Each structure stands twice: as structure tokens, then as C-alpha cells.
Amino acid sequence: SQVHIGNTTFTFDNPEKAQKYAEKYAKKKGLTVQKNGDVWTVE
């Protein structure tokens, strides 16, 4: 599972961890999370 934030990609061994990280980061920065398969993009 991966989380894309700008030009940075974070890889997680667990989809739940990836989703939590993406949502927490997005909330903190006032951004949105797009999910595509097991990839979350914060923008």
C-alpha cells in the first residue's frame, strides 16, 4: 500500500496504516485523500 503526498511516496505493509496516515496528514494540512486501489493520494 502506498501514500502519495506531492512528489513523495510512502510505502506501508498494511493498507489500514496507509489509510490512517493519509487521512491524518490530510486533516492536518486541510487537504483531501483520493483512493485508487491500494494507493492513497493526498492533494
Score class of each variant (00 low, 15 high):
1 S>L: 12
1 S>W: 15
1 S>E: 02
1 S>G: 12
1 S>T: 11
1 S>I: 14
2 Q>E: 11
2 Q>K: 13
2 Q>Y: 14
2 Q>P: 03
2 Q>W: 12
2 Q>A: 09
2 Q>M: 13
2 Q>T: 11
2 Q>V: 14
2 Q>H: 12
3 V>N: 02
3 V>G: 02
3 V>K: 02
3 V>R: 02
3 V>P: 02
3 V>I: 04
3 V>F: 04
4 H>Q: 13
4 H>R: 15
4 H>A: 08
4 H>Y: 07
4 H>V: 15
5 I>N: 03
5 I>P: 01
5 I>E: 01
6 G>F: 13
6 G>P: 04
6 G>A: 07
6 G>M: 09
6 G>H: 09
7 N>E: 08
7 N>Q: 08
7 N>M: 10
7 N>L: 08
7 N>D: 10
8 T>G: 05
8 T>H: 15
8 T>C: 15
8 T>V: 14
8 T>R: 15
8 T>M: 15
8 T>N: 11
9 T>R: 11
9 T>W: 15
9 T>D: 03
9 T>K: 12
9 T>H: 11
9 T>C: 15
9 T>N: 05
10 F>I: 13
10 F>R: 08
10 F>H: 07
10 F>D: 00
10 F>K: 06
10 F>C: 14
11 T>V: 13
11 T>N: 10
11 T>W: 15
11 T>L: 13
11 T>S: 10
11 T>A: 07
11 T>I: 14
11 T>R: 09
11 T>F: 15
11 T>D: 06
12 F>E: 01
12 F>K: 02
12 F>P: 00
12 F>Y: 03
12 F>G: 02
12 F>T: 03
13 D>P: 12
13 D>R: 07
13 D>E: 11
13 D>N: 10
13 D>Y: 09
14 N>H: 08
14 N>V: 07
14 N>G: 06
14 N>W: 05
15 P>C: 12
15 P>M: 06
15 P>G: 04
15 P>V: 06
15 P>Q: 08
15 P>L: 07
16 E>L: 11
16 E>N: 07
16 E>C: 11
16 E>I: 11
16 E>Y: 12
16 E>H: 09
16 E>D: 10
17 K>S: 14
17 K>L: 13
17 K>N: 11
17 K>G: 07
17 K>M: 13
18 A>V: 00
18 A>F: 01
18 A>E: 00
18 A>G: 02
18 A>L: 01
18 A>N: 03
19 Q>M: 10
19 Q>W: 09
19 Q>F: 07
19 Q>G: 03
19 Q>T: 02
20 K>E: 14
20 K>L: 13
20 K>P: 02
20 K>C: 11
20 K>G: 06
20 K>S: 12
20 K>H: 10
21 Y>R: 02
21 Y>A: 06
21 Y>V: 06
21 Y>T: 04
22 A>T: 02
22 A>Q: 00
22 A>C: 06
22 A>W: 04
22 A>H: 00
22 A>R: 03
23 E>N: 06
23 E>G: 02
23 E>H: 07
23 E>V: 06
23 E>Q: 09
23 E>A: 07
23 E>P: 01
23 E>Y: 11
23 E>R: 07
24 K>E: 14
24 K>S: 13
24 K>N: 13
24 K>D: 14
24 K>L: 12
24 K>H: 11
24 K>M: 14
25 Y>M: 10
25 Y>V: 08
25 Y>H: 05
25 Y>K: 02
25 Y>I: 11
25 Y>N: 02
25 Y>L: 12
25 Y>G: 00
25 Y>F: 10
26 A>K: 02
26 A>Y: 04
26 A>M: 04
26 A>H: 01
26 A>T: 02
26 A>V: 01
27 K>F: 07
27 K>Q: 09
27 K>A: 10
27 K>P: 00
27 K>N: 08
27 K>G: 06
27 K>M: 08
27 K>H: 08
28 K>N: 07
28 K>A: 12
28 K>Y: 11
28 K>M: 13
28 K>F: 11
28 K>E: 13
29 K>I: 07
29 K>P: 04
29 K>S: 06
29 K>F: 15
29 K>Q: 07
29 K>L: 13
29 K>Y: 15
30 G>M: 03
30 G>Q: 04
30 G>K: 04
30 G>T: 04
31 L>P: 01
31 L>K: 02
31 L>M: 09
31 L>R: 01
31 L>I: 05
31 L>V: 06
31 L>H: 05
32 T>V: 11
32 T>K: 11
32 T>W: 04
32 T>M: 09
32 T>G: 04
32 T>L: 08
33 V>L: 09
33 V>K: 02
33 V>Y: 06
33 V>A: 10
33 V>Q: 01
33 V>H: 00
33 V>W: 07
34 Q>I: 14
34 Q>S: 13
34 Q>W: 11
34 Q>K: 13
34 Q>P: 02
34 Q>T: 14
35 K>S: 05
35 K>Q: 08
35 K>N: 06
35 K>C: 08
35 K>R: 14
35 K>V: 06
35 K>Y: 10
35 K>I: 05
36 N>P: 01
36 N>W: 10
36 N>L: 12
36 N>G: 03
37 G>T: 03
37 G>R: 04
37 G>H: 03
37 G>S: 02
38 D>F: 13
38 D>M: 09
38 D>L: 11
38 D>V: 07
39 V>I: 12
39 V>Q: 07
39 V>Y: 07
39 V>G: 10
39 V>E: 09
39 V>K: 07
40 W>D: 00
40 W>Y: 10
40 W>T: 02
40 W>Q: 00
40 W>F: 09
40 W>S: 01
40 W>R: 01
40 W>V: 00
41 T>I: 14
41 T>W: 09
41 T>P: 00
41 T>F: 13
41 T>L: 11
41 T>Q: 06
42 V>M: 05
42 V>C: 04
42 V>I: 12
42 V>H: 01
42 V>P: 00
43 E>G: 14
43 E>D: 12
43 E>Y: 14
43 E>V: 15
43 E>S: 13
43 E>C: 13
43 E>I: 15
43 E>R: 10
43 E>T: 14
